[in-house]
Design a protein around this nucleic acid. Structure first.
Lengths: 248, 248
DNA sequence: TGTTGACGTTGACGTAACGTCAACGTTTCT
DNA sequence: AGAAACGTTGACGTTACGTCAACGTCAACA
């Protein structure tokens, strides 16, 4: 038997057979005078055994392990049980992913915002989408935080923010956004800074400061915002945080 | 923000961020005077979006496709539905594998024969395990055929062989094996050849010839056996097949 | 002021299980 | 005799990064 016949018998490619030789899974048979490999029934049986194990999902390394020593009985059982546990984990993981997929697919419009949590999606619908530089920043900041924080922290955050989406809070919010936007070219010492900070602190729930208490949050956010906000706006941000923390 | 902070924010490694740059998933940001990459909030948001999609199971290529064009809405939905179908197929495949694993694990002894079908395992238990060269060959041949043939063909084959495992058939079989072994050094023209072939043909069910009617079976088997059997034994094999076919 | 440590840069190799050329020799069919 | 089909070895491609290597940059500390 030459390599092609052997491969056809086992239902694999010749490349696969040579690959198994390379890994030592299948012994190299004798060569004919022309250099061709000459196989016997033995090789076909071994190859079929390897195939059956790969089809079960064992890796070639594991197969070499369980096929090698003579006391392969307990070894094989152990490997199979481990494999089964692994497959069970995979099933769970796939199930979880499919649930998230189903939730996503249930939405009617799939925009870039639809990969965030449903709660945040609702909040984002209320935020001014354009026209305010600061609102756009908030939108991105919230999206980012939504992805970073774990589910429970996210839900707490959303719970704090929710009151801000009520009609008259939204109206006040839009006014505050405008006043913040007006500071785009202002000096950090501008008198409007302190006033706006006080108004903002009164508008926002005190617990919100907690959202910026994580390991990275404050520094990272300051760094990230540095490039996007004017010095005056950053000063407002700082003052608001200080005030909220003090009030707690 | 430099690359380490960005990566920490998104919960990935810096290598991952650079990898995304390489693939064009994340735009290369501006460089500082020292050559360091400088990131903004934008980048963090994009990176977080990519992460969320990878965690759903999308490949980076697919993410680039759905993230690229502006009309990503329908595209994304399509990709997600395709993904869900793929995951469903994976779940099925894993379930099937686990069923086969469970069947295997239910056996008390896991030898090299335990990766064959249960029916064949029962047959093999009745075959002489040692002492007869030809019996060993049969054992290997059967194991091989079990792996090669599809389930229905296998069951037909097993059904034909089953009568051979009854007590007095087994006794006759052992005698036939011995007579076949005695031809190991005989000449193809030996008078015992024809006699044994006739006895064997009478012993075996006629339908068995069908098992060697597959696309490869006859030539492959003859080739495979050539190295293991003596010319006289091969002649017996040929005569038996001819007789069985003729009787059908 | 030198040094140490943490960070950044590019480039290249390794992973699992083969598929797919390339470049070449052998056998077999017509 | 030429073509088709098979064999040989060797090397690159696939996925999503991990893990050096070899080197430059920056902040802190003795």
């Amino acid at each position: 038997m030459r390599i092609g016949e052997l491969a056809a018998l086992a239902g694999v490619s010749t490349r696969t057979v040579r690959h198994y030789h390379h890994l030592g899974l299948l012994p190299e048979p004798v060569r004919l005078a022309n250099g061709y490999r000459e196989y016997g029934l033995r090789d076909a049986v071994v190859l079929a055994r390897v195939r059956r194990l790969t089809e079960l999902g064992l890796s070639l390394d594991e197969i070499r392990d369980v096929l090698g020593p003579g006391d392969r009985g307990g070894d094989l059982r152990e490997a199979l049980m481990e494999l089964d546990a692994d497959l069970a984990r995979q099933q769970e993981a796939i199930g979880a992913r499919r649930e998230r997929l189903a939730a996503l697919l249930a939405e009617e419009d799939l925009g870039p915002d639809s990969t965030v949590s449903p709660g945040l999606a609702a909040v984002l619908r209320e935020l001014p989408a354009e026209g305010s530089r600061i609102a756009e920043l908030d939108r991105e900041l919230l999206t980012l935080l939504d992805g970073v924080t774990d589910p429970e922290a996210r839900d707490r955050m959303l719970g704090m923010i929710r009151p801000l989406t009520e009609p008259e809070a939204l109206a006040r919010g839009r006014l505050l956004y405008r006043r913040l936007d007006e500071l785009a070219d202002a000096d950090p010492g501008d008198p409007r800074v302190a006033v706006l900070a006080a108004d903002l602190a009164a508008h926002l729930p005190g617990e919100l400061a907690g959202a910026f208490a994580g390991p990275y949050a404050v520094e990272e956010m300051a760094g990230a915002l540095g490039a996007e906000m004017s010095p005056a706006q950053i000063e407002v941000f700082r003052l608001v945080l200080t005030t909220l923390r003090g009030e707690r």
